[in-house]
């Protein structure tokens, strides 16, 4: 984790979110990392639902196994949290969109988009076409747009990021910024010239 944070600092990120699968980081552990590196580290959680992976902020409960999307939504609403559909079209090009007849309009009807607040439209683990398709769907539905590296290795940190309009000091600030929808997913790591390039206004 120290290496990951050092790398995030090195490439110029202002903060990172730890969103391990079905794992809740202890606040004191993350606080210690924050203090040690003088760097913003925030906690999230990527939860496996029956409709796909969902990144959640603001939920303290350690959820294990597969959760029904409706149940997760109810819990997150109660907690005042925020839900993001993670890489919603990962792997859908296995068959080719043309063969499935999947259009952004049809995809907008998917259940998952009725239960999330935002959509990850730049994910470091899917290809550009899958990201582009997610962007079309999210924009069509007017959902909040985010980007994330989905980094599992140090060198993957910052490939994509989310630029926020207001300063964020803690998880509550992050949730409020997300709820305002003032976000811009960015391709961060391509180079300094691209570092400030948001793909959406």
């Amino acid at each position: 984790m120290d290496d990951l944070i050092r790398e995030a600092v090195r490439i110029g990120l202002d903060g990172i979110c730890l969103t391990d699968h079905n794992h809740v980081w202890r606040p004191e552990t993350v606080d210690a990392l924050r203090q040690k590196h003088g760097f913003l580290v925030l906690r999230g959680n990527e939860i496996i639902t029956d409709q796909g992976d969902v990144i959640v902020f603001g939920l303290e409960r350690d959820i294990q196994g597969i959760t029904r999307l409706e149940d997760l939504r109810a819990e997150v609403l109660q907690a005042g949290g925020f839900m993001i559909a993670a890489h919603p079209f990962r792997g859908f090009l296995t068959f080719g969109v043309d063969k499935l007849g999947l259009t952004p309009e049809k995809a907008m009807q998917r259940k998952i988009f009725q239960y999330v607040d935002g959509v990850e439209i730049l994910n470091g683990k899917v290809n550009e076409e899958e990201n582009r398709f997610a962007g079309q769907v999210a924009q069509g539905l007017g959902l909040v747009l985010t980007g994330g590296s989905d980094a599992h290795e140090v060198e993957e940190v910052g490939r994509y990021a989310t630029r926020l309009a207001s300063p964020v000091r803690n998880e509550q600030d992050l949730i409020e910024a997300l709820k305002k929808g003032q976000t811009a997913p960015v391709a961060f790591r391509r180079g300094r010239n691209d570092a400030r390039t948001g793909v959406h206004p």
Binding site: I48, D50, Q51, G52, D53, G65, I66, R90, G91, F92, T94, K111
Partner: peptide, 16 residues
């Protein structure tokens, strides 16, 4: 029922 065929499906089906 309701699960979408694609990446991660085996884990989701077993879990459900």
């Amino acid at each position: 029922v309701g699960v979408r065929i694609g990446p991660g499906m085996a884990k989701i089906i077993k879990g459900l």
